[in-house]
Design a protein around this nucleic acid. Sequence first.
DNA 1: GGGTATTATTTTGAAATCGAAATTACTGTC
DNA 2: GACAGTAATTTCGATTTCAAAATAATACCC
Lengths: 406, 406
Amino acid sequence: MPRRIKSKHQHVASLEAELLRRVRAHGGLSRVQLARDLKLAPSTAGIYVDRLVREGFLLETENAGRETAGRPPTSLVPNPDGGRFIGVDFEARNLMATVVDFSQQPIRQVHKTLRPTDSAAQILAKIELAIDEMMVRDSRPVLGIGVGVPGAIDPVTNVAVHYDFITGWSDVPLGARLGERFGVPVFLENNIRSMALAELWFGAGRGLRNFVCIGIRSGIAAGVVVNGQLLHGAQHRAGEIGHWVCPVPAELAETASARRNGEWRWQAGAKLEQVASLSAIVAAAQRGLERRQKTALADVKGELTIDNVLAAAHDGDEFALSLVRAVGRVHGWVAHQINELFNPEKIIFAGPLADLGDLFLATVHETARELGDAGRDLVIANSTLGQYNGAVGAAALALHQWKPKR
Amino acid sequence: MPRRIKSKHQHVASLEAELLRRVRAHGGLSRVQLARDLKLAPSTAGIYVDRLVREGFLLETENAGRETAGRPPTSLVPNPDGGRFIGVDFEARNLMATVVDFSQQPIRQVHKTLRPTDSAAQILAKIELAIDEMMVRDSRPVLGIGVGVPGAIDPVTNVAVHYDFITGWSDVPLGARLGERFGVPVFLENNIRSMALAELWFGAGRGLRNFVCIGIRSGIAAGVVVNGQLLHGAQHRAGEIGHWVCPVPAELAETASARRNGEWRWQAGAKLEQVASLSAIVAAAQRGLERRQKTALADVKGELTIDNVLAAAHDGDEFALSLVRAVGRVHGWVAHQINELFNPEKIIFAGPLADLGDLFLATVHETARELGDAGRDLVIANSTLGQYNGAVGAAALALHQWKPKR
DNA sequence: GGGTATTATTTTGAAATCGAAATTACTGTC
DNA sequence: GACAGTAATTTCGATTTCAAAATAATACCC
């Protein structure tokens, strides 16, 4: 009769993991503060912290000048040499990868371009290549890999279920494959959700327990954090607001008749992704060029890209600005709906539009305030984490899920 | 120096409470099954169950004919005489109250009508009166009171924060007041959320971990259950989809021009509550009568009520039916949006419209399927719990929050 | 410099919980 | 009716976690 194999101290490991998470989130905590935060007895916190220090995951630091009475606390920080984690984030066109040290400081980053014609196998190869480049053999070993995957994933089996925009990307056993190849634990997450994790841990959502992160790239999706936890939904498909049926501002309408007046219109079946994503902006700009709209975009050589449009808006081109504002109005409506349904502490926009700053956000905010009761309690912000957002979030996912072995 | 008073065994009490919840949810569990469900050692489960049996909260039952080998399990059921709980649910016009026994079987129910002119104080008095009527002095004592309150509440301080449709209903210390008056713990919850709890524990949401309950009465709101937990939001204001800006079907439009064609329209500022609530239906029906629409409703004496309209629809009146269908289309859109955002296992509609059955739900379902990708994974249902739904949920809230004293 | 107040950490013994090994109460088989 | 097989429950240390008390390290005051 085979003896059942079972970790004898699984709680111990997860408690240690929780302590590490806390120390990473608010560096410089003491044993006693940790005990208070986690509702542990001080003695218990002491035991675990001692062990983590002994094993080289935490460092005790001198704390500089203090003025309060009493025995000074011994502050704890994660030991950067505790180990490294790799994060990968990709969608149809781009792949980003990063390595972070044990204190979640990025050490190195890499960007690769994906071609629309790339097959699933080719993309898999590029992922492995990017990870290889991050796998530098120095100091401490790589302890885990996190991947932000477009489309649906199954975080239990670590399978990438499906993504429309990569041919053959269905039921890819990404976790198993990378795990075998690199010999470390692999964690998958949908990529907008890993962006939300990045915001939660080091971005605009730091310290919040309820917020929504809206990612606008080729598609549109939302990562929802409730009580400090990512929301997945029954089939891990929560957040697909790209499929929302939404109002269409005249500027973004496809037909001339729909553009006639300034009023927003309701078109049966107009999906948010087709109305207010980056690709929708490019399409609307192209329609504008076709009808000889006066704009600096007319001078663009070759294929019109989203960067052209955003640059023109940034430089004050009226037509490009009108498109950005129209998209902003739609997302103002989105923010309003989400605010009423979730009552989050904050709504964070991520992606190239967010990088435009106030140019985009002002319209969003204005529209949301108009729609709500004086927009009460509505806080909207742009992500400030830049384009490695998702990769960093994926690395942090691995970092946070990882547990010291017992 | 006053010694800090603190329950020495708070986990014990909450573990016992959890065991009780499990046994209520799936009557007839055994010690071992409970241990498995809660990931406890069998010995631990045994210790607690023994104590609960000894204290009269659980009963061991004979289990009828079985065919499996091995020592038969001793099934456990909640002891109906373990204690009673009172639930109250009210909104602007109605107040419902119920008592349930320890196995959550309703024992008695009462309904009171509230007048629109009632002040906060008068309503408070009616609540107390209803509770008095439920406070029968027999067998076991009342252990807790749950109240489903309209509008915003603060479940931490147990204060009813605000509700628009009762004059002076602001910062009512309902929990403290009832607690003093009746000498038992009082638990507050927003009333749509307590309806969602009722669905979770004994209704269409039984056994589910992710679903949304949409309540359509004078207003419209949603109770969202994620991972088996109610979602509250940052200021406990989650679920206010009545404020959603939504499309308006021609049948429900206010102006003649908007009614002109069959297309749905987007009106800036059209709120779901003003478009697709019970009061909106009555208003649309009245507008129909004013323009001499052919309908059985023309024969109604006195003020037109929602019951008239729903009865007419039930009897096949074309005009009334067209209104119900139009509202159904709007809620089909709502279901679609919620489905994409949350990916719940089920969406449950509650309120008088749901009591119409398929007459209402068919349109909802059809619209939602049209809007989604073949409506994949979308399950929509009507509540079957009837009008004491909220009261039962409120009682269950008290029942579930209550812990045996240690 | 010595006492007092204050806060962090460690020590200590007790309570909660566990895992593995009995024990119990059945069913089915010869 | 004894005997094997099976699954629930109990028993019995061992481990984890706790709470309270003791100890340590500082500031502040005289």
